[in-house]
Design a binder for these strands. Structure first.
Length: 107
DNA sequence: ACTTTGACTTGCA
DNA sequence: ATGCAAGCCAAAG
């Protein structure tokens, strides 16, 4: 595990309830602007291992779509949790304009 | 040790 | 405005 993973986990864990963020924002926050895929890998590792304390369901792609919902226990749990936190949906994507959350850039 | 793929994004045609 | 291609880091084959 690289230190980047820790940064990613730290940021994802810092996402407030009822808010969502995108892979690109997290990637930019850890200093790797084009490393959005790395974020996905980190979350996949988190989901596959026992790092469930990280709210990976609050991480969506830049369109607000729940791209990683199929990696959860069930494809519905992700939306269920987001809706339970008060996140509004526009069709199959979250209302980014209303719930987007931008992490602080880490040096 | 090298190649391929993946929970993505951005840029050019 | 839509479609295809390239780029980036890390892990699995």
């Amino acid at each position: 595990m690289s230190d980047r993973y820790e940064l990613i986990y730290n940021i994802v864990r810092a996402i407030p309830s009822g808010r969502v963020t995108t892979y690109g924002h997290i990637a930019a926050a850890i200093g790797v602007r084009s490393g959005a895929r790395l974020v996905g890998w980190a979350l996949n590792a988190v989901a596959h291992q026992d790092r469930i304390d990280i709210p990976c369901h609050r991480v969506v792609n830049r369109l607000g779509e729940l791209s990683g919902k199929m990696h959860f226990e069930t494809p519905f749990v992700m939306r269920e949790r987001l809706e339970a936190e008060g996140v509004g949906f526009l069709g199959d994507a979250v209302d980014l304009d209303q719930h987007i959350w931008v992490p602080e850039i880490a040096p």
